[in-house]
């Protein structure tokens, strides 16, 4: 049986939290947006392209989570022979939680906004630009989470250490 050091295990949890929760939020958000878009397309076939745009927006949270998870893994688990201390492992959990939970909330929020925007656009096509702006607003929470995750990794000694 392969012995896994505590620090490495904690870093793995951090990577899992990063993509797991961000992906959960993104998935729920995208599902809500997609369901709304399908309804809009059922009534107006011309809504297909705009529906796809709104449905694609909540994808970004999963991308942020995926990036952080990859970075965490590249600088800890995937470095041969590198010993990861328990303290570094906790930093990794912090970074993962930052983007994971921020992505969860942001993804769900963006999905709801996207679905409502699709409804508005199908009701009044002039609402497209304003719908995009409103839908983009919940992106900020994911960006905050992403930034904090990066900062934690940089100043916690995971990146460039």
């Amino acid at each position: 049986m392969v012995e896994v050091a505590l620090g490495t295990a904690l870093a793995a949890i951090g990577a899992g939290v990063a993509i797991g929760f961000a992906g959960l939020g993104s998935g729920i958000g995208q599902g809500i947006a997609a369901a709304g878009s399908v309804g809009a397309v059922a009534e107006d076939e011309d809504m297909f392209a705009r529906g796809i745009i709104f449905t694609a927006l909540p994808e970004t949270q999963a991308i942020y989570g995926f990036l952080i998870a990859i970075l965490l893994m590249v600088f800890t688990i995937m470095v041969p022979g590198k010993e990861v201390s328990a303290a570094l492992g906790l930093v990794a959990i912090g970074a993962g939680a930052a983007i994971g939970f921020a992505g969860l909330g942001s993804g769900m929020g963006q999905g709801i906004a996207a679905s409502s925007s699709v409804g508005s656009v199908v009701e009044d096509p002039d609402m497209f630009a304003r719908g995009i702006i409103f839908t983009a607003l919940p992106e900020t929470q994911a960006i905050y989470g992403f930034l904090i995750a990066i900062l934690l990794m940089v100043f916690g000694g995971l990146l460039g250490g």
């Binding site: 729920i28 679905s115 199908v122």
Partner: peptide, 24 residues
């Protein structure tokens, strides 16, 4: 925390498709 955040969102889920059709 996750469960309490997701539950209200999931209650909206069944309405997203009908609402888009109704709003159209």
């Amino acid at each position: 925390a996750v469960i309490s955040a997701i539950r209200p969102v999931l209650s909206m889920y069944p309405y997203t498709y009908p609402l888009a059709r109704v709003r159209a």
